[in-house]
Write a protein that binds this DNA or RNA. Structure first.
Lengths: 176, 176
DNA sequence: AAAAAAGTTCAAGTTTTCTTGAACTTTAGG
DNA sequence: CCTAAAGTTCAAGAAAACTTGAACTTTTTT
């Protein structure tokens, strides 16, 4: 049992509170838990949800070592989690004078979060789907006439789904 | 190597085509692959995507054993995959006269698919999130005054996200 | 009723994904 | 420059998720 996990401990104020004394409060635990659930829903690692959740609860930007200590996660996890969060635009780096460490603050605008997630995780799938559609159409040429009509219908229907998703995403980005 | 998987074989027409001779054609492979990707995006098992993809390509409802043979998956996987698909309303059971087996046909309307997925996989998360929000509000009472104001702000913001998602989902269900 | 077909369930095995820790790179100060 | 702090990377280990296969339940046929 190397370190108490914020998910499982009871947040008593004197629980070996990590190097910088960044004990996690009970309401924060609850927020973090919420983001861990959300992370699982959208298919990103738990640690990413934890990190974002922690930052969301803090008024000031935190450096990576505070995050590691508060959540009891490794340097590697923290680094990769922050990388993911930066990639989707869910955190930004803040420079603090007189401190070499990068500090991180969360993006608080839902629209930005959704937008970043869509560009990074959804759009690529839609694009590769478009490629596959073209490929399918080329394969249709070689089909016997009777089965071909049916296959054409289905692939056309797939195409219309693709189109709908393509129009919906930009709307979603603005709607939130 | 028990059976050739539709994902990895080259679909040559005489590849040990399964008991009922339900060889999977090349365009079908491509469609199935598309649904497997989609499945991964929305966080359901690969086999679920495979099964739906196969049904999507066939004009007539298929019984479970055809599905197993065509995809080279086990009875257990097929049964559980179909269960999931029924649950989200992505397939329906069709009774064929003179055949004891259940046959399955795919739901083809995007709106129904999205709607079923949302009710089954997203709504529960939103609901439990609502619960956690209430819990957080109760925890706030016990906070020292200075930190409390900030915590209240954040939790209120979380609440507004929750509200936005709650209003967006029904819109999405209709928009597609 | 017995037997067989269809379908479900679940423990065990497999595969995939996430986390860790140590080595490595980079940057800042002395 | 040299040293140390900060951060990244990645191979190996741990954990989670999926699949399998066999036992079990239900339903139908003889």
């Amino acid at each position: 049992m190397p370190k108490a996990s914020p998910q499982s401990n009871n947040a008593s104020p004197t629980d070996e509170p990590a190097s910088q004394n960044e004990a996690v409060q009970e309401w924060e635990l609850s927020v973090i838990e919420t983001f861990v659930h959300a992370a699982q829903l959208i298919g990103v690692p738990k640690s990413v949800g934890q990190i974002y959740g922690l930052l969301y609860c803090r008024e000031n930007p935190l450096p990576m070592d505070h995050i590691m200590d508060a959540l009891g996660i490794s340097k590697g996890s923290a680094s990769m989690g922050l990388k993911t969060l930066r990639q989707i635009g869910a955190v930004k780096t803040v420079f603090v004078i007189g401190d070499r460490r990068d500090h991180y603050s969360p993006e608080l605008r839902l629209r930005k979060l959704v937008s970043g997630f869509i560009s990074d995780q959804v759009q690529p799938h839609l694009d590769s789907g478009g490629e596959r559609l073209k490929h399918m159409e080329s394969l249709l040429e070689e089909l016997p006439g009777d089965r071909r009509k049916f296959a054409e219908q289905r692939i056309q229907s797939l195409g219309s789904w693709h189109g709908k998703m393509t129009t919906i995403l930009p709307i979603l980005r603005k709607l939130l």
